[in-house]
């Protein structure tokens, strides 16, 4: 399945506190219950730490979790 591009990520401009590297957008595998999604997210190119912006975590990702939980 194709990589999902989340519009909110376009405005993210962060650096990794540990490495000092600017985050770059890369496909990241997200799993929840039995579903798996490949989503483009900001990643540190040095240590591969992934940033999930708060608005995304509390917004769409929360909505997806509820949807998959059938709530």
């Amino acid at each position: 399945m194709s990589v999902i591009k989340v519009p909110e990520i376009d405005s993210v401009d962060w650096s990794c506190a540990a490495c000092g590297e600017e985050l770059v957008r890369r496909p990241v595998e997200l799993e929840y219950l039995d579903s798996q999604f490949t989503v483009e997210l900001p990643v540190c190119p040095q240590c591969n730490m992934v940033l999930i912006p708060k608005a995304l975590a509390l917004g769409k990702m929360h909505q997806v979790e509820q949807l998959l939980e059938d709530k």
Partner: peptide, 9 residues
């Protein structure tokens, strides 16, 4: 779920 993630909010 994919549509939610990819949609405009």
């Amino acid at each position: 779920a994919r549509l939610v993630l990819a949609g405009g909010g």
